[in-house]
């Protein structure tokens, strides 16, 4: 463990807590893409199957349980509990255009042709594009609540910090995973536009309005 990965995981944890608090306090899921949240639930489910087969640490296991659990609670909030506030008319990204290519790529490009490894690879590739429905929704509605912007900033920061973690691990531990690094770069690049708007607007008290 290193400071970059720890802060990255905390940023990821914070993002999830911000989202849940927004939903619970405002009793609304307005502006949140249910499709992205479903993709995140798939990401965690396919990535953490080793939860039962290999034990790394209490931290690792508890974080995995938390991420899987909260991802399903979030999907439940959107599609059941707060369904009347779900804005399905603006959440129209065709996720099959993500899942099919990512599934095919995971099948072709992976470290080992085994079920667990292909599912892990699928999860890594899927996570890199899972935020697209959410960013698409923000661009369609033309704006995002500031709490949603904070959620996206924390979520985008987590993988950017993981990039620093991989640089650190490469030089100090000789650890290198090309698949995770490439997907992490794609994932972080997708947030660049948002990061720019967040830093230039939200931090000055303005609202975000992605070009519609």
């Amino acid at each position: 463990m290193n400071i970059f990965r720890l802060v990255g995981d905390m940023s990821h944890l914070l993002a999830i807590i911000i989202l849940l608090m927004k939903m619970w306090k405002s009793r609304s899921v307005a502006g949140i893409s249910g499709k992205s949240q479903i993709l995140f639930a798939i990401v965690f489910t396919t990535r953490y199957l080793d939860l039962f087969t290999s034990f790394v640490s209490i931290y690792n296991t508890s974080m995995k349980v938390f991420f899987i659990g909260t991802s399903y609670v979030t999907v439940y909030f959107i599609y059941q509990h707060f369904k009347p506030t779900y804005d399905s008319n603006h959440d129209t990204f065709r996720v099959e255009f993500l899942i099919v290519p990512v599934g095919g790529l995971a099948f072709l490009v992976n470290h080992e042709f085994s079920l667990l490894e292909i599912l892990w690879t699928f999860s890594i590739y899927l996570e890199s594009v899972a935020i697209l429905p959410q960013l698409f929704m923000v661009s369609k509605t033309g704006e995002a609540e500031s709490i949603t912007s904070h959620y996206l900033f924390a979520l985008g920061s987590y993988r950017a910090l993981y990039l620093l973690n991989w640089i650190y691990r490469y030089y100090f531990e000789g650890f290198f995973d090309l698949i995770a690094v490439v997907a992490g770069c794609v994932q972080t690049i997708l947030y660049c536009d948002f990061f720019y708007l967040y830093i230039t607007k939200v931090l000055k008290g303005k609202k975000i309005s992605l070009p519609a």
């Binding site: 080793d50 290999s54 790394v56 290198f176």
Partner: peptide, 10 residues
């Protein structure tokens, strides 16, 4: 520099 067999990252 193969990646660690056991996935220790989240």
């Amino acid at each position: 520099k193969k990646e660690a067999r056991v996935k220790d990252e989240l």
